[in-house]
Design a protein around this nucleic acid. Structure first.
Lengths: 144, 144
DNA sequence: GCTTGACTTTATACCGGCTACAGGGCCTGC
DNA sequence: GCAGGCCCTGTAGCCGGTATAAAGTCAAGC
């Protein structure tokens, strides 16, 4: 099959397929006499694998590593486990950060009702006030 | 004060200060005879404001807009409110997506204990299996 | 006066994960 | 023979910085 069909069947853009090839996530396929890429079912399977990993928000470098490991059946799989574990830790940290951020933004939103003018906008006042209290954390002179 | 002191007092990198100037978030300061940037207290206040907004993960374009609006005291502040509201919605959506992702990754992690070999790694098998079930959502032929 | 080192200047490239565009070639159907 | 759709390569843009190079400036110490 040609690149358009492959892309359509995996639900990705044609450009993305070429990008993955450049990045070493898809093997370069055979070419037709006119230079078109000619893919087989294995390429589709690989592409779907990559997309599934991406849907889990794994980095391309991590996916590349998993693909490399997957080729060596007899090696211990600890590295795969660690990779997933580390990724989970990052996702969890980010989720927690976003939770805190969400609370801050909810508090900020509550500072102003519609119909105000800029001069009396509670949101702006709060933003300015909070910024003033925020020196560089590593260099607070009055503290201690 | 010069750029190094400004950056240190705001807790940012010197490069970042110049970047913000290029991006129109900080006014270009006066220059000393030798071409060094010379900042006043207002610049520091502005920089801290920008950094506070960034700590709320606001986009630079949004911050630029807020700064522009802040200059016009008598205009209605609805746009500020909408901006915060839209940002909150994005943060919330992202947080929820990460929550789902976290659960998926936890389930994935549970598929394999350490000490396995690649050939028997539950995580890899699950990744491969899940990828196979994932055609393009917009073009499932057997469904219906 | 000369050197050292810390600071500053501009310009340019890089990161991830695509996405878009330009300028061409190929192929099929009418 | 030509219109339209597909494909090719190469390049640039997005975001919010970060990193590098090569050069200029300035104060302190010898």
């Amino acid at each position: 099959m040609r690149i358009g069909e492959l892309a359509r069947r995996a639900g990705v853009d044609v450009q993305t397929v070429r990008y993955y090839e450049r990045e070493g996530l898809l093997d370069a396929p055979a070419r037709t006499p006119s230079g078109y890429r000619a893919y087989g079912p294995a390429h589709l399977e690989r592409l779907r694998f990559v997309r599934h990993c991406r849907s889990l928000d794994m980095a391309l470098a991590d996916i590349r590593r998993v693909l490399a490991l997957a080729r060596e059946a007899s090696v211990a799989c600890d590295e795969v486990n660690q990779l997933v574990e580390a990724h989970l830790a990052r996702v969890r940290a980010r989720r927690q950060a976003l939770e805190r951020l969400e609370q801050q933004l909810e508090a900020l939103r509550a500072q102003c009702a519609n119909g105000q003018r800029i001069a009396g906008c509670g949101i702006l006042q709060e933003l300015i006030h909070a910024a003033q209290g925020e020196a560089c954390a590593c260099h607070v002179e009055g503290a201690r």
